[in-house]
Design a protein around this nucleic acid. Structure first.
Lengths: 125, 125
DNA sequence: CCCGCGCGGTCTATTTAGTAGACCGGCTCT
DNA sequence: AGAGCCGGTCTACTAAATAGACCGCGCGGG
């Protein structure tokens, strides 16, 4: 996804193709997983790390930063000691859960079929 | 996405998580784009390349191979001269179009909001 | 008092994934 | 004859993701 359509200067945030645009974000597995994890409620940084399980700090940090930039996630810093940082879905972020759930439902429903197909093709080799 | 681990509260340790599994395949941008392109009908290899626009031969080849293994795409070789190879969605592949359309609809609907959020966050920096 | 842990990250080095581009033989079109 | 399409594979390079160290601060236990 290097050069979708060669962005014009001044156009840097207006990607012409919405599909490409959404893919750049959620097509990335980590963003998808982070959003799915945040679906169950507001969480802190290390809490997210634990809940996702196998994401590196750096990737989580970068992913959250992008999701915040895109207005899907809100980051709240509490000026306490020790500092507390909470992440939660914005209304825009929550609106994304609907098509996301559709995808997850498809995965649940057809996972076995995919596995079967995979086994079958492996047997042919 | 190395180890299929925790996902969210109430996760199953049992089998590989379907969500991870589906993300490994279609969460990859190229797979998603290829399926979306094939939605408009049977196409040949170079035809797909042209229609997608900015995918490398290698990636298209690899992506199609995986989609075929997973039973989402059927590859048909016609023993002609010159050889003709056609790719089309299987019923399983077509079933995926439904949640995919949901995602694309979300993208269309909220693309502007995402762009606005991006601009806003840029201005704050 | 000192040790190690948790917090929310960043920085660096290494591994891995994706890219462009050459190449293949056989064919058609000009 | 030369160029170009067909469906790919192979190689060399570059971009991205990973693991792991590190940071200052506070807290609880020994």
């Amino acid at each position: 996804m290097r050069k979708p359509h060669a962005l014009e200067p001044g156009d840097e945030f207006e990607q012409p193709c919405p599909i490409r645009d959404v893919l750049d974000r959620i097509g990335d597995q980590w963003s998808f997983l982070v959003l799915n994890t945040l679906a169950s409620g507001t969480q802190r940084f290390n809490e997210l790390m634990r809940n996702i399980g196998d994401i590196s700090k750096q990737m989580l940090s970068r992913t959250l930063k992008r999701l915040e930039e895109d207005g899907l996630v809100r980051r709240t810093i509490y000026p306490e000691v020790p500092p507390r940082v909470e992440y939660q879905l914005t209304p825009l972020g929550r609106s994304f859960l609907i098509p996301m759930k559709g995808l997850i439902a498809w995965a649940d429903e057809h996972h076995q079929a995919v596995c079967d197909a995979r086994k079958r093709s492996r047997r042919l080799k």
